[in-house]
Design a protein around this nucleic acid. Sequence first.
DNA 1: CCCTAGCGGTGCT
DNA 2: AGCACCGCTAGGG
Length: 180
Amino acid sequence: MNSHLVPIATTEGTFTARFSATGLAGLEFPKAAPIPRRAHRSPQPDANLNPHRAPLPAPLARWRAVTARALAEALAGKAPQELPPLDLSVGTAFERRVWAALAGIPWGRTRTYGQIAAAIGRPRAARAVGRACGANPIPVLIPCHRVLGAGGRLGGFSAGLEWKRRLLAREKLPAAPAKM
DNA sequence: CCCTAGCGGTGCT
DNA sequence: AGCACCGCTAGGG
């Protein structure tokens, strides 16, 4: 898998972006501490983070900058102005349709799993939509956190509900603890 | 709140 | 083909 892992430091910790030849292919939440922690030795930049020694895509530096800015904006509670090209070639056809629908949810708005299901023409596949959301390789920028359960329930989140709550709060969205 | 039945996509056997 | 997962949902206590 020709891809480059690139750490992206934010106020919420260091994310890891994965870039393929065609764009941002993955984004991982900070591993342990939400608060960036200084290691004993100063962390090496991205020098050794390419497990496959793939040739460096020429636009990578720009993609990284765009990604870092978009992520910073998202975490600061602002709608990202520009996203890097997204490489969503990995998923199934169904998952890609779900992800495309997620990408269309405006900043500061939410949908339910059922609404996404209906939007992609599979009105009874709400549960499968939830599963596909969990497979979203680029959380935050592909806003799977804006998908809630029916009646405003929080629903689930692969990276932990704490993140979902936090991301929703950044967009001034009701934490929706109301269990109907 | 709980429980149940029904649902669809995915991956493993 | 079968089956066991699941970020679901509607309906009934």
